[in-house]
Amino acid sequence: MLEVRNLKKSFGDRPILDGINFTVKDGEILTIVGPSGAGKTTLLRCVTGLESADSGEFLIDGKPFDPESVEPEQTVIGVVFQEFNLFPHLSVLENITLAPTMVLKQSTKEANQNAEKLLQQLGLAGKGNLYPFQLSGGQKQRVAIARALAMKPKILCYDEPTSALDPNLRDEVAQLILGLKKQGMTQLVVTHDMEFAKQIADNMLKVQALDSKQA
């Protein structure tokens, strides 16, 4: 379970987030929705430690954690980026096994086995030796998911999972996320797509732009 309490963030003197509270229960999907410029991505970046929050508390299973910590034991959050951010020079398999071997110190054999299992699960069996440029957008996204899952996170976060893909893949992404939920994955999804959010959400958090000039 992830709890975020009273999260605040501003850029310079422009407030972006003020007093954000939410909870993602184990095995549930929380969607964060709101118009463009409302700070959804900033919120996600604070939770994933890519941006430092001005104030606020982060708790995982009731225990406080620091999203910005670089300690490998603090790998509680997995991230699937909007543009996937796969490593272009590494094969699909290497993309997935790099962090488990280097950070979690898994043996190459163990990491490879886990990765193969994840690829199988995500319908990417046999694609391990391909390079990211050889994959379709949907496949890249699934590799990004596999890469995040290989670190055994407690919660998986997505930034706009539908926006870099062909619109007709929306249902496929929804099925993918719901499929992971069935396996017990806790997920946090940032999206501007209301339809999509409703399709997958157990709970929904709406954020509004604090700065009216933004619009």
Binding site: T48, G49, L50, V70, E71, P72, Q74, T75, I77, G78, V79, F81, E83, N85, L86, F87, P88, H89, L98, A99, M102, V103, R147, A148, M151
Partner: peptide, 27 residues
């Protein structure tokens, strides 16, 4: 090198030198 590469490595908890050595320099 796209900032996303550093962020991708960061959320995977790769250290600075691991990121430089394995992600950045080869590219």
């Amino acid at each position: 090198i796209d900032q996303g590469q550093y962020e991708g490595a960061r959320v995977l908890r790769l250290s600075y030198w691991q990121t430089i050595r394995k992600i950045v320099i080869p590219q």
